[in-house]
Computed example of a mutant assay.
Amino acid sequence: MRSTAGSTEPTGAATRPEHEDRVSRFSTAERMVHRATGWLMLLCLVTAACLYLGPLAQLVGRRHLMVTVHEWSGITLPVPFLLGLLSPVFRADLRRLNRFAVYDRQWLRAVRRRRTSPESRPAGKFNAGQKLYAGWIAGAVLVMMFTGLLMWFMGLLPFVSRTSAIFVHDILAWAITFVLLGHLRKAFEDPEARLGMRTGYVSRSWAQRYHSRWLREERADDGAGGPADRRMT
């Protein structure tokens, strides 16, 4: 590739979508869905704590406001996901999350045997832990919405008592809290993963180390003129 006068950079370098040492991981649509869902989930948990924990409820007060915010943040929780379905990149990653491959089972076996080297934990764009988390949290949110609607609209299902709905809702809320804390802990342990969700790009060396199968897929797509140009959708 030719260089312009007075410059050591190739003429096409400024127009390339990513640097040689960076690789596109998440599109703008995916990052917006993740961010909006995270804020709505946080709002649900904070308002639930203000309703459930006595000392906090007394400190905050405004119970009717907390109930209203909690109900509507819960009802709107799936909205970012549904809007994200308009993005082909988002839908492609959903298919990745729903596909459990042989190397995912190898990843889980390596975790159980406490192997820490990335070579012993092969992964595609998402590792087996991320796939299990995504599936679990999606199911938990659906159950929370269902039980919340039963509590909100009494008589929706007469054969299900309000007490039963409250019990399931409360137990699952605690489970979600602990799982989310584990998710945040893992995220804070990996600054590069957070960078990928914040900017959309990760270092090529990180991708090669922790998601080598995905990086090979990206290289194959680039060489074949595949979806590499659609990742910013």
Rank of each mutant, 00 (worst) to 15 (best):
Phe126Asp: 04
Gly196Cys: 14
Lys131Thr: 02
Thr4His: 10
Glu218Thr: 15
Pro78His: 04
Leu149Arg: 09
Leu195Asn: 04
Glu217Gly: 03
Met144Asp: 05
Leu53Ala: 14
Ala134Arg: 02
Ile176Asn: 02
Ala228Gln: 15
Leu77Pro: 13
Ala57Arg: 10
Ala138Lys: 14
Ile176Ala: 00
Ser117Trp: 01
Leu108Glu: 07
Gly124Val: 06
Tyr210Trp: 03
Asp190Asn: 08
Met145Pro: 01
Leu59Phe: 12
Arg2Val: 15
Arg209Val: 03
Ala138Phe: 11
Arg213Gln: 00
Pro55Gln: 12
Pro158Cys: 11
Val33Cys: 12
Val143Phe: 12
Leu215Asp: 14
Val67Ala: 09
Ala29Trp: 07
Thr76His: 12
Val143Ser: 15
Gln208Trp: 01
His64Pro: 14
Arg22Thr: 06
Asp21Met: 06
Tyr52Ala: 04
Leu56Cys: 05
Thr4Trp: 10
Ile137His: 02
Gln208Asn: 06
Arg113Pro: 01
Glu9Cys: 13
Asp229Lys: 15
Arg91Glu: 13
Leu97Ser: 00
Leu77Lys: 06
Cys50Tyr: 08
Gln58Ala: 05
Arg63Tyr: 06
Cys44Asp: 04
Ala13Gln: 07
Pro55Val: 14
Arg115Val: 06
Gly155His: 08
Ala128Phe: 01
His169Asp: 02
Trp206Asp: 09
